[in-house]
Design a binder for these strands. Structure first.
Length: 868
RNA sequence: GGGCGUGUAGUUCAGUUGGCUAGAACGUUCGGAUCACACCCGAAAGGUCACAGGUUCAAGUCCUGUCACGCCCACCA
């Protein structure tokens, strides 16, 4: 079974074991990183030591972030994995930068979502047909049972992902103190006159049997029909909803429409109902659409409702709240579902010869966000909120007091804020915060407690879930915590809830704390599958992040996600991404093993050589870039920088060079910085290696964030770069000429510069090129057929037998390439306008380039003459 | 109907204030059990930068228009 590096008796013993017999006291050492043995152990350790617990009395600068609370009974999705990885990166980096960090977690009761699920389950179990069968109290008991059973799963999953939340402060929107705050807010806004009750046309969800806010309605393009129905000799109306005709109270035409002017004020007989209804004139009618005649159904269409108010028409309700037809619809239709009724009405019209024609028609139909059934416009008494602090909230984003990333979302925000409409707060549900209003006859009382006296009954409805969520950034905190950590610093969320949640939190923040709730909002992309489809349960295209963690490790999943999560762009996710992440972690693991092995038998340090200079120089650059990109929330750029540096620069070049002459001090210095830079992205493996490498005796979480400092002498870095160019050239020669990698060959290097430098690096060159010998000779003249390649600092010759024809062809091709470039560059420099008008640096650059190209051309021409 | 975003290699994406032969990763092809790692190493092939105009010495990059896809907003029945 694999054993951790840190468990080995001593570094020396370990290194010895790895080098010679791969075992320590008979135990096999794992070559591959195994996340399972590492992750749970460290998470438990961090928790037990309270590393995530925020201290309000700390003197450090505060950094805070509140989690977008997931549904209490939900399970982790790829969206959560993305969102929470981003938050964890922010939090962990700030801890390393010396901030006192609060990442406040919690869950949302998610009124309609949770209630729907519980109801459905109970129905499936045969316990009930409808929630009314149980009654309010019994039903709520069942929901709480459900919450106890399924709540907290997502919290465990967030821990698996490595989230460094302060779990001692975990909140739930239906906790006692939080609920009290929600009700207090309602009463306060009622007293201030922002909340009122009114009979209005609302979005009704017949499946959930509740009203919804405009934001909870999703418009979906739907393939439907436009039925043309004869209402009288001269009148044909077109409708997408024939069943509503049973509740028609008028036909409307435009007042100036000459075709119908003579009918205005006359009466028609409503088909199927045999009821007389008037023809009215209203400017809302578009004479160019359809026939120019509109049927008016006051109780089941918003536009018709408003028209009915203007014309004082009666409101005949033909569809009941559960979506079935009422008695008013007539005995033929009473009790039918609204869509069955549609067919029945069409059938009867057809029989009566009143159906003039049917057109295919695509239009947008509102659907319930939660139950996904078509919304029914429904006239009912509901509670509404006129939003407070609208102008303040607009200017907060306008002035940059609150900053959006990516910036463009502020336009969406502005548009909504400037066209803001009152918020329908009441929901005809039981799971949630019950509206703190009592009625007795005509009396209405709003308060935290029931009024004294007999005969008062409380409003049966509960509040919209978002009416509790909008208080999240401050009502989750106690006095001391708020004093230290509010306003919060960053918020990370999806752009799909910019209205539902973000905008409302801003308004609540200004109303109740006189401050913005957060300084920055980072909007993530939406995770899609490789075909660009949104991930959803029903499509079955959403991988379970827990499965991915089991297969690739949390760090692998996290890093793979970060590599492809560009700012504000949707993310096409594929399991391959996690594989890339896992492979990278394994690479890191093995780099550590390499360093461990080098520690045995090598002095702790030696003077810096060229490779040391270069890696330190690149290290400095990567620190700068990672910090700069993270500062502007470009997580994927930071991840890419780390990936390229660690794999490309550190492993491919520096570790390879170390095989010739290791410098333990530099290996450790660079690797220590790597672990710290990588820790926010990959918390588990970095903690494991930080400890097993012995960089510190305590957690990496509070190790200082690396600072860039100028290191590595620039002229040596340039020379080393040229040296690596020779290596690439030599490898190319071997490959192009089909030389077996095991076969040792002789190389001759004819430098055009840096000759002494290259001479000092022959051991390195010989090692990395698997050469029998490497000669550096400014005067080198090839004898016979010697494949060669021109780099910008030298010509590389591979001494040995080759196919002259193939070599000639290759060199000719290269010559052609160079000739083409020379022609282009010459043309550019011959252009008077370019020389005169372009930036002098650009011209200079072109001249230098031309000189270099000509030099290369000469060399190749010289080679070619020898090949003939 | 209005707004926003995206079109670059087979795929997913980089590409700074216009200025190297347009890059990377994955995939593909070729070679390789080398003593950190086959979850690896080395090399190669692969592009009319959606299209059409324009500005400029110079356009993937700036401007105009067109097309395609995606998202958000909007009570034409």
């Amino acid at each position: 079974s694999p054993v951790r590096l840190s468990r080995c008796a001593s570094v020396v013993e370990l290194a010895h074991a790895l080098r010679y017999n791969h075992s320590v006291m008979g135990i096999e050492i794992s070559k591959a990183y195994d996340p399972k043995t590492v992750e749970d152990k460290w998470y438990a350790d961090w928790l037990s030591k309270g590393h995530f617990t925020a201290n309000p009395s700390s003197t450090k600068l505060p950094y805070s972030i509140v989690i977008p609370p997931p549904n209490v009974t939900g399970v982790l999705t790829m969206g959560h994995a993305l969102n929470n990885t981003l938050q964890d990166i922010l939090a962990r980096r700030k801890r390393m930068q010396g901030y006192e960090v609060l990442w406040l977690p919690g869950t949302d009761h998610a009124g309609i979502a949770t209630q729907t699920v519980v109801e459905k389950t109970l129905r499936k179990q045969g316990v009930i047909k409808h929630r009314d069968d149980l009654g309010r109290d019994k039903f709520l008991e069942k929901v709480w049972e459900w919450k106890e059973k399924h709540g907290g799963i997502i919290v465990q999953q967030l821990k698996k992902l490595g989230c460094s939340c302060d779990w001692t402060r975990e909140r739930f929107t239906m906790d006692e103190p939080y609920s009290a705050a929600v009700l207090r807010t309602f009463v306060d806004l009622y007293k201030k006159g922002f909340i009122y009750r009114g009979k209005r046309m609302v979005n009704w969800d017949p499946a959930g049997r509740t009203a919804l806010s405009d934001e909870e309605v999703i418009m979906t393009e739907t393939q439907g029909h436009l039925w043309h129905i004869r209402y009288g000799t001269d009148v044909v109306v077109a409708t997408t909803r024939p069943e509503t005709m049973l509740g028609d109270e008028a036909v409307a035409v435009h007042p100036d429409d000459p075709r119908y002017r003579h009918l205005i004020g006359k009466k028609l007989v409503l088909p199927l109902r045999n009821k007389a209804i008037p023809v009215i004139a209203d400017a809302a009618v578009d004479p160019k659409f359809g026939t120019g005649c509109v049927k008016v159904t006051p109780a089941h269409d918003l536009a018709d409702y408003e028209m009915a108010l203007r014309h004082k028409l009666p409101f005949t309700v033909v569809i009941s709240p559960d979506g079935t037809m009422t008695k008013e619809a007539g005995e033929d239709f009473e009790g039918l579902d609204r869509f069955e009724c549609r067919e029945a009405v069409v059938e009867q019209l057809k029989e009566a010869g009143l159906l003039v024609k049917v057109e295919e028609y695509t239009h947008n139909v509102g659907h319930s966000e939660r139950t996904n059934v078509p919304i029914e416009p429904y006239l009912s008494e509901q509670w509404f909120l006129r939003y407070p602090q609208v102008t303040e909230s607009i200017s907060a984003v306008e002035t940059g007091a609150i900053k959006f990333y990516p910036e463009r979302w502020s336009k969406t925000y502005m548009h909504w804020m400037r066209n803001i409409r009152d918020w329908c707060l009441s929901r005809q549900l039981w799971w949630g915060h019950r509206i703190p209003v009592w009625y007795r006859g005509d009396e209405v009382y709003c308060g935290l407690e029931a009024p004294t006296g007999d005969g008062w009954t409380q409003d049966p409805d509960v509040l919209d879930t978002w009416f509790s969520s909008w208080l999240w950034p401050f009502e989750t905190m106690d006095e001391a915590t708020r004093k230290k950590f509010y306003p919060t610093t960053d918020l990370v969320t999806g752009p799909d809830i910019i209205f539902l949640w973000v905008a409302r939190m801003i308004m609540a923040g200004y109303e109740y704390t006189d401050a913005k709730p957060f300084g920055t909002v980072y909007f993530t992309g939406i995770i899609r599958d490789t075909q660009g489809r949104k991930m959803s349960k029903s499509l079955g295209n959403s991988p379970d992040p827990l499965d991915l963690i089991a297969k690739y490790g949390a760090d692998g999943l996290r890093f793979g996600l970060m590599l492809i999560a560009p700012q504000g762009q949707d993310i096409l996710f594929d399991e391959k991404r996690s594989e890339v992440g896992r492979n990278f972690m394994n690479k890191l693991w093995n780099a550590a093993r390499f360093i461990q092995m080098q520690r045995a038998g090598n002095p702790p340090a030696r003077p810096h050589n060229a490779h040391d200079h270069r890696v330190l120089h690149e290290l400095n650059a990567v620190i700068t870039k990672v910090s700069a990109t993270l500062d502007v929330y470009k997580f994927n750029d930071a991840a890419k920088e780390l990936y390229d540096f660690i794999w490309g620069d550190f492993c491919d070049w520096y570790i390879e060079a170390s095989k010739v002459s290791p410098n333990i001090a530099v290996l450790d210095e660079v690797f220590g910085v790597i672990l710290r830079l990588l820790h926010p992205f990959a918390p588990f493996i970095t903690e494991e290696l930080w400890n097993s490498m012995g960089y510190a005796t305590s957690t990496i979480q509070f190790a200082s964030w690396p600072e860039a400092k100028l290191q590595g002498r620039m002229e040596i870095v340039i020379e080393t770069q040229a040296l690596y160019g020779i290596v690439t050239g030599g490898r190319q020669l071997r490959n192009d000429n089909g030389v077996d990698p095991k076969k040792k060959v002789q190389f001759a290097i004819k430098p055009s510069k840096h000759a002494d430098f290259f001479r000092a690096e022959t051991a390195f060159l010989a090692g990395i090129l698997n050469a029998e010998s490497v000669t550096i000779d400014e005067q080198y003249v090839s004898t016979g057929l010697t494949p060669s390649l021109v780099t910008n600092a030298a010509t590389v010759f591979m001494v040995g037998a080759v196919d002259p024809a193939a070599e000639h062809e290759k060199q000719t091709k290269q010559l052609a390439d160079i000739a083409k470039q020379i022609t282009g560059t010459e043309a550019k420099l011959a252009n008077e306008s370019f020389v005169q008008r372009a930036a002098p640096i650009a011209v200079q650059r072109e001249r230098e380039k031309l000189a270099m190209l000509r030099e290369q051309r000469e060399k190749i021409q010289a080679l070619l003459t020898k090949l003939v």
